[in-house]
Structure formats: structure tokens, C-alpha cells
Design a binder for these strands. Sequence first.
DNA 1: GACTATACGGAACGATGGTTCCGTTTGTCA
DNA 2: TGACAAACGGAACCATCGTTCCGTATAGTC
Lengths: 202, 202
Amino acid sequence: MSNTTGCEGISEGGARPLRADAQRNRLRVLEAAEAVFASEGISVPVDVIAEKAGVGVGTLYRHFPTKEKLFEAILIQRLEELVADARGRLGSDDPGAAFFGFLHHLVDEVVLKRDFILAMSGAGVEFEVVAADAKEDLQNAVADLLRAAQAAGAVRDDVSGAVVLSLVGGTCMAAEGHHQEAAPLDLLQIICDGLRTAETSS
Amino acid sequence: MSNTTGCEGISEGGARPLRADAQRNRLRVLEAAEAVFASEGISVPVDVIAEKAGVGVGTLYRHFPTKEKLFEAILIQRLEELVADARGRLGSDDPGAAFFGFLHHLVDEVVLKRDFILAMSGAGVEFEVVAADAKEDLQNAVADLLRAAQAAGAVRDDVSGAVVLSLVGGTCMAAEGHHQEAAPLDLLQIICDGLRTAETSS
DNA sequence: GACTATACGGAACGATGGTTCCGTTTGTCA
DNA sequence: TGACAAACGGAACCATCGTTCCGTATAGTC
């Protein structure tokens, strides 16, 4: 179980616990960053985040050594939530529904948090966000759902987890641009139909 | 017929013709910019383009008032090529093949020119690239191909040109990130299958 | 060949934005 | 309550990059 915040709220192991104000501020920064990154994109100046958090930039930088690391912390948190959701669907009686349901959930999550997929696929982002472990966890979780759905005959056999994630990611990115026409869920519909086997396609 | 380069090679109308060296340099800048934007993305410093063109930045800026305009010039040129390709396929006996063939062509073009779709859909790009006319031309051309394919029963009726372009754009953007796995054409295959009507899906 | 408008190069400017530094404040503990 | 380490704020620093400016070079013309 990885520690998303990067610090132990209350005492632990070697390092002494954070002072009360430090704990509070760290949380505020994380919350502000999450909101601001989601609405403004990754390129917002750190000052904006600090201001929204009611904190000086110096404080922000004591908690996160770099803007990139701050973003990564949020990213990891979100990825872990998605992984948990995916795992929760894994035992379903209807693996096809579980798989497609997760894809819908994924798109819903992502359209509200624009930065997210952009970062994951590295498009338009200057720095290379790592979060490698969390990414891999998500990929594995999706692969599990996919395999079950394929075994149940609900999804064609010639696609991989990577392909599915790319398709969904692309959908979200595309929806980002053409705001009005081409709603994300319309795009997802086409993709889901493409993923079905010929037999099960309506 | 719009004039992509924004200047008349040899004499015309009101303004006097460009001096020979100016014409040469303008071309060099366009070529260098096309290559560099394609390989490095839109965020390359203009110095890089100027250097590759064997020209000072001042020269670059005399020909194109702004980096954005330079990019737009290239974009318009590419869009016009695509429109021409689309129009050429319009009279085909097999509208379905014409439509899907164009989508393949589109993806092939775009994966080689990374900047392209990113700019068209505005994701990750700071400035708003205009090229409104050229974009609209492409949308119209795609819509024509789509309508014909739908009339022929090769494509489901509940999709619009905007949806198709978003899907293809998303595919290209997604392929950008996950380089190895998830080849663009694999993704496109799924999308094309999703676009087919139930009757024609293999 | 000389003259001039045109074009060139690239140093310098200004804006932006990530990161650091240090004087001040504050929580914690005795 | 006093002392000290920990944390804070935000001005200053530095790097990057788009754009401008101006002294120099050159194509075109007589």
C-alpha cells in the first residue's frame, strides 16, 4: 500500500511527525492543486495553486520538491481510486457489463479532470510524469477486467489492455477539444461497439 | 483557392514582388518549421526553426508576424491537402471503402506530424490556432464522405462528421503517448468496426 | 559601379514561471 | 512562559522564450 501523501500524518518510524500547521497546509495544497489542475490544466503557475491554498509558494515547495512531484502525487491518488473501482467490478457475474461499465466510469472521471489523461499519455505535457507503479496497477486491473470479458465472449479477442486504455484516453482527449459536438459518451459508444465481438454487437 | 504562403511568389496586384533572397528564405523557413514542428511539437523555440532554416530570427519574423501565424500557415497547407484527398475520393463507386480509406489516410498523415491534430483539437496547446476556414473545409469534406457512406449502408446513421473527426483525432493523440503497444492502425481498426452498421460488420 | 530600398542577423528586451533564500512567525515542549 | 526547532511567506533569482530593434549586407536598377 503506497503512501500517496508522501508523509505520515501522525508519528511513525524514523522521521518525527509534522507540526500541526504543516499537516494542515500540506492538505490544503493538495486540495487546491487538485481543483486547479483539473479546471485550468497542468500549465497553471504554481502561484495560483499556492494562492488558492492560502499559502505562500515557499510553503508549497517545502512539501513538494517540485511542481511535477505535486502533480504526480495527485495523479497517483486518482489512479489508485480507479484501480480500486476496477478491482471492485472484477468478480461480477456479467464480465462484459463490468468491463464496459468501468470504461464509462473512466470516461466520466476523466472528463471532469482534464489534466489527468493528458498527463498519462504525455501529450502536450512538458515534463514526463512518472507514477509508473500506479500506472502499471491500472493497466493490470484493466487487463484483468478485459480478460474476463473476453472469456465471457463479450469482447473481441484481438485487443489488449493497452489498446483499450489508449482508445479511452484518446476519446477523452478528443472530447476535450471539440466541446459542444461530439460528447465524450457518444464517442465511447462507438468504441464500445467496436470492441464487442461480432456476435454480441447489437 | 486560398494562398497558403501568404505572399505572391512573382509579381501581382498591388504589392511589389519579394526580393529573390526573401523568397528563398521564406520557403526555407516554412520547410524548416514544418519539419521541426512535426518532430519536436509546437513548443519548440523559434530559434530552433530559424537555425534549421539557416536564417536569423529577425528574418523569420519579417515573414511571419508571430510564431502562431507561422504554425497556422503550415496547418492550413496540410488541411488543404487533406481536403483535396477527401474530395478525390468522393465520387467512388464504393462510398464505404472511400470513407474508411480516407480515415486510414488521415491517421497515416497525422502520426507522422504530431503537432497537427494536437493543434486542431486545441489540447495542450497554449494559443488558439485559428485556420477556421480550412478546418471547416475539412469538416465539410468528411461530412460529404460520411453521408455517402451512410447512404450506401456502410456506416451507421447515428454518427456525425464531428464525431468521426473527434474519434480519429483522439486515436492519433492516444497513439502519440503509448508508443510501442497500441499502434495507431490497431486503434483505428476498432473505431472503424464501431462505425460500421451491424449488418456490414465482419 | 553607385545608389537605395529591401532584407538580413542576432543581440537585447520584456514577460512568464519554476525554484530558492532568508528574515519572521508559530507550534511544541519543558 | 521562555526557548528553539520547524514552518511560513513572498521577494528575488534565474532560465526560457517570444518579439523587437537597429546596424550591416545585398538584390535590383540606372
